[in-house]
């Protein structure tokens, strides 16, 4: 009888926990952010093959590097969501794939305080594979004015896009940089002004190679790195910010 009761309690606790595993970092935002970004009935597992790299400390709270390396992940990512647990708006980016799966993604983020950072990669069965990392920080990156806003000539460089395609064995790495203040909206008298959507297309193909949706955790003048399993085609970069500005550029084949 006692055994049955124990089993019943165990089942009950599983239901209440919604199947989320323990957070090795014990972040207070663990379950809240999982429910918010992946859904409360999602299946989540920790996975070392989701290699999320951030430095142990943030030298500049407004520019903290993040690289997500999926080289060891055995199947194409169906969707990727990244977030910074203790930021006022934690979401950093959501990635949706095209025909060629992404092997590596990189983008700098802001930190408001020392925090855990998460990358969730969804497989074909819908299971989310989670990589976590911790970054120490003096903080304040979300509520510090952008360097752009301190520069009276910012409009001259606003929207300047630099890029390159780098050949890496069977793969191609794209590196793209756009001059944009990416204002978080958390600084007095400066409304949110940031790039929300990014897409990369093979020239002449209406279906994107990849799509990104960004939020306010993304750092100023973003530098994107995407590595795809393909030879470098001629391609087209398309971005749109929350004020409706569209930036569109063409990239040749492999350069240095």
């Amino acid at each position: 009888m006692r055994g049955w009761m124990a089993l019943g309690l165990a089942l009950l606790s599983v239901t209440v926990q919604a199947g989320f595993p323990e957070d090795p970092f014990h972040s207070p935002m663990w379950e809240y952010n999982l429910e918010r970004y992946l859904g409360d009935d999602s299946e989540v597992v920790h996975d070392e093959r989701v290699e999320l790299q951030v430095p142990p400390f943030a030298e500049d709270s407004a520019q903290v590097p993040l690289t997500l390396d999926l080289t060891a992940f055995p199947e194409p990512a169906q969707r990727i969501v990244t977030w910074v647990d203790l930021n006022p708006i934690p979401h950093l980016f959501t990635y949706e794939p095209g025909a060629d799966p992404v092997r590596l993604l990189s983008l700098n983020f802001r930190v408001q305080q020392a925090t855990t950072v998460r990358a969730a990669v969804q497989d074909a069965e819908g299971v989310w594979h989670l990589g976590s990392a911790y970054v120490d920080a003096a903080g304040g990156g979300c509520t510090a004015p952008s360097l752009t806003s301190a520069n009276p000539d910012w409009e001259k460089v606003f929207g300047t896009v630099r890029g390159g395609a780098f050949s890496r064995a069977e793969h191609t790495r794209y590196k793209l940089n756009v001059m944009h203040p990416m204002d978080s909206g958390m600084v007095g008298n400066t409304p949110a002004f940031y790039i929300e959507q990014v897409a990369l297309y093979r020239e002449g193909d209406p279906h994107p190679l990849l799509r990104l949706e960004l939020s306010q955790s993304a750092a100023e003048n973003p530098m994107f790195v995407f590595e795809l399993e393909q030879e470098a085609p001629r391609s087209r970069l398309w971005m749109r910010d929350n004020n409706g500005n569209v930036f569109e550029r063409h990239l040749g084949g492999t350069s240095s």
Binding site: Q63, T160, V161, R162, G163, G164, K175, L176, N177, M223, L237, E248, R249, H250, L251, S255, S256
Partner: peptide, 14 residues
Amino acid sequence: YPHYEKAALALLPE
């Protein structure tokens, strides 16, 4: 590094 990175990329015209 951001200075080195930008120098290694090409300006993409509109």
